[in-house]
Nucleic acid binder design. Structure first.
Length: 786
DNA sequence: AGAGCGTCGCTTTTT
DNA sequence: GCGACGCTCT
């Protein structure tokens, strides 16, 4: 992309980018040379500064090609790209690399995979794939999964990798037999992934370091290219990410990092706050800019957040302030149990929407753990409040979806033993554990991959003739479709291949509602491939797989809808809403229980609470329950100590209410129903924390019977509400009639022959012009009526 | 080989 | 309250 003399049609040559920026923001934008640390408080216009800064760079004549922007989420990367394009036009912004650490590194690693002993078609393993590999290794080593849990081992391996430690370090630091065993599993795991031509998420970082450190010419190439580097959320970088960033920035030292130590909430994933705390030590010549003016929240919300975060030690110095109004006080809902909490929140939301002119999309309910969403969903459904869940149970976690993906991965990377083992007997081919063991033994005896062993099925001793045929057929299935990898577009290839696996036929034959559901999910995967392929005609299957490996289903289309958002606080980072409800403020839940023993864990939980509070623009509602259903049983709880850290002057005088009182209107004060008792003493839940015990609930007889809720049957649930985990937008299945002409994204135009079932289960038999006759689940099929 | 049953452990957060 | 896993039976 040389720079020809083409005028930029969409953009006047000099937009005044600095207009409307405050002095610190402007300074951050204009400091283009040398290292720059931007300490960006919550709501201080960070994204704006980042994007304007890049736009400014480009306007100064820097080529987009030489800019690299690294983020943690795909969403952040996408937003940044879009906003920069808006500022300078897509022509000028073209060629800039903005992406997550993992996606950018995966792209670079594919290009140089051979230097590290991988092929460019390596598979990327997510946590589940890692677990499968670890289990396989444990079985192979004869380690009982009872004694050492695979998921603990996964965590330990991941943690070690994030700290750039290998199995050798782990072994030398081992303090027990267990530790040594973990190290041994670690070692075998590494070997296994290598044989599988696969990398886990952490490897994407580690291999990037290896690549750059062992190949000076490659490093030089990227030094040449990336002259300006930006890192968002620098407080969340782990040691490996820190290392790569510093390697890449070493030559030009034009490294701009942005972050807020108070919002560091990923320590459990290896994030090291000290990376941001030590930036000035790493780059003594660094410019430091503090963005301290908050444009998001009211004074009340900021005061509460500030009071909370003050309890943490070792923060970077900064003082958030705002010109925004004082705003409403924070409401506090004390509830009897989690069901009432959900009902109370739902009612508060409904009241404020109808009385204060908010829209559904202005509201979010945040919680600490995903499990909490269930009760909240039920309540919202009962009240007919439309909502969506941000990154709930993943679509990609469903068995049939994982199987489908595993088939696709195997096609691209036949060395991938994990995927192979997943699908070898799905649908049943008579290849059971015994046969697999034989093949595996043969493979390791000959030092070849599982798939290669299967290709020599006839030479493997002890295989029954019938099974040998099955194995040969399976190999044929894969190899036959492999030849189309380079010639057919993924949409076609995948359709044919998955059909040939026999999976759709298997579910078809089962003919249960559940099987139809699964069939619909497989269809959704295929449609998704087709969709992406339509946008990117040059897409390869390998690229598609990489995309879905590195994308969680966060960027669901429902964000555009006017619905209340439900999500974990982690998922809420970077977002803002007019009205934010934070549920489950109880000891043991938020802060989560393990914070009791480890003060640094408590500080992380407190930062998490800080993040939650600062998502709110105008109003905050905090809630807790005295009893909560967890682990299949009812637990009694105490209010979160974080509540006591909020100054009582920030809390609404009538803020503490029972769920019963909150139903409909939140005005009944907590505690004895004595109207003369100044509610001030109660709201102090307190203000002093130790008063917690005093705020025991009113007697249950004072509260409306909870039976009033159970009178609401499932019929009260509006049919169009999203069901848990169902990412598909509600489809009006009733509008389809036989005889209609319809269009399917993959099968094309056809005519409905018949419709059966109702609602979620409605199915249509469609005869397509291609001659195919298909039974399609209407909720998933995306049939367009012509 | 595969279905069926019982036990266990567990739900923090995600690229 | 769920799913994953292992054991037993057919």
């Amino acid at each position: 992309m040389s720079q020809p003399f083409i005028p930029q049609p969409t953009q006047p040559p000099s937009v005044d980018l600095l207009k409307g920026l405050n002095p610190s923001q402007a300074q951050a934008v204009q400091t283009t040379k040398g290292p720059l640390l931007i300490i960006a408080g919550a709501g201080s216009g960070k994204t704006r500064v980042l994007t304007v800064r890049v736009a400014y760079l480009l306007q100064q004549g820097v080529s987009a090609h030489s800019v690299l922007a690294l983020t943690f989420t795909n969403k952040a990367a996408k937003e940044m790209k879009e906003r920069i394009e808006k500022l300078v036009g897509s022509y000028v912004a073209h060629g800039m690399w903005a992406g997550t650490f993992h996606s950018v590194f995966a792209r670079i690693l594919r290009r140089h995979a051979h230097l590290l002993g991988f092929t460019e078609r390596f598979t990327i393993y997510d946590a589940d794939d890692q677990l499968a590999a670890i289990k396989a290794v444990m079985t192979q080593l004869g380690v009982s999964q009872q004694v050492l849990s695979p998921s603990t081992i996964r965590t330990r391996i991941s943690f070690a990798k994030n700290a750039m430690q290998g199995w050798r370090e782990m072994e030398s630091q081992a303090r027990s037999v267990h530790d040594r065993q973990v190290a041994q599993i670690f070692q075998e795991y590494e070997k296994r992934l290598r044989n599988n031509n696969s990398m886990d998420f952490d490897d994407l970082l580690l291999n990037m370091i290896r690549l750059l450190e062992h190949n000076p010419d490659v490093l030089a190439e990227y030094h040449e290219r990336f002259q300006y580097i930006l890192v968002d959320e620098y407080q969340d970088t782990n040691r490996a990410q820190y290392r790569v960033v510093n390697l890449l920035a070493k030559k030009h030292r034009n490294l701009c990092v942005v972050g807020d130590d108070a919002q560091s909430i990923y320590r459990w994933r290896g994030a090291e706050i000290k990376n941001i705390l030590d930036f000035e030590r790493d780059y003594p010549e660094a410019t430091v800019v503090r963005l301290e003016q908050n444009y998001r929240s009211t004074k009340t919300i900021l005061a509460a957040a500030d009071a909370v975060i003050k309890n943490n030690s070792g923060q970077l110095k900064k003082t958030l302030w705002t010109e925004n109004p004082e705003g409403e006080k924070i409401a506090l809902l004390g509830c009897r149990d989690d069901r009432e909490e959900a009902t109370a929140l739902s009612h508060v939301i409904r009241t404020r929407i109808s009385e204060q002119g908010y829209q559904y999309k202005d509201v979010a309910i945040l919680y600490r753990t995903n499990a909490q969403s269930q009760a909240l969903e039920d309540a919202l459904r009962r009240d007919s409040i439309p909502y969506h869940i941000v990154s709930g149970v993943s679509f990609y976690k469903r068995k049939e979806v994982k199987d489908t993906i595993a088939y696709l991965r195997l096609l691209v990377n036949p060395s991938d033993a994990e995927s192979l083992l997943r699908v070898i007997n799905e649908p049943a081919r008579g290849i059971g554990t015994t046969s697999i063991q034989r093949i595996q033994d043969y493979a390791s005896a000959h030092g070849i991959t599982l798939f290669e062993a299967m290709q020599q099925a006839s030479k493997i001793g002890g295989l029954q003739k019938r099974i040998e045929t099955s194995v040969t057929d399976f190999v044929k299935l894969i190899t036959e479709h492999q030849q189309y990898l380079d010639t057919q577009p993924p949409s076609i290839l995948v359709q044919n291949f998955i059909n040939a696996t026999g999976m759709p036929r298997m579910y078809q034959a089962q003919d249960t509602a559940e099987a139809m559901d699964r069939l619909g999910n497989i269809d959704r995967v295929l449609s998704h491939v087709a969709e992406v392929n339509e946008d990117e005609p040059d897409l390869t299957l390998a690229q598609y797989l990489e995309q879905i490996a590195l994308v969680s289903d966060q960027d669901d289309p429902e964000l555009g809808n006017n619905t209340v958002a439900l999500m974990t606080i982690h998922a809420a980072k970077g977002l803002e809403f007019s009205l934010v409800c934070i549920a489950g403020l109880e000891q043991g839940l938020f802060p989560l229980s393990k914070a009791d023993t480890d003060p640094s864990e408590e500080e992380e939980e407190r930062r998490l609470f800080y993040v939650a509070l600062t998502r709110a623009q105008e109003q905050l509602v905090l809630s807790f329950a005295e009893r909560r259903f967890r682990f299949g049983e009812v637990n009694f709880t105490r209010p979160s100590k974080f509540l006591s850290e909020i100054d009582s002057s920030c809390l609404s005088a009538s803020g503490v209410v029972t769920a019963g009182g909150a139903v409909g209107r939140d005005q009944r004060t907590f505690g004895r129903s004595n109207p003369s008792a100044p509610s001030r003493s109660n709201q102090g839940i307190g203000a002093r924390g130790r008063t917690v015990d005093r705020m025991q609930p009113p007697s249950y007889s004072q509260l409306p019977s909870s039976e009033s809720y159970s009178q609401l049957g499932p019929d009260d649930v509006p049919a169009a509400m999203p069901r848990r985990g169902a990412a598909a937008p509600p489809v009006q299945t009733s509008k389809y009639r036989s005889g209609m002409r319809v269009k399917h994204p993959m099968f094309g135009v056809g005519q409905i022959e018949s419709v059966s079932g109702v609602g979620q289960n409605a199915k249509a038999t469609v005869l397509f012009f291609s001659g195919q006759r298909k039974q399609l689940m209407l909720v998933f099929a995306k049939l367009e009526i012509l």
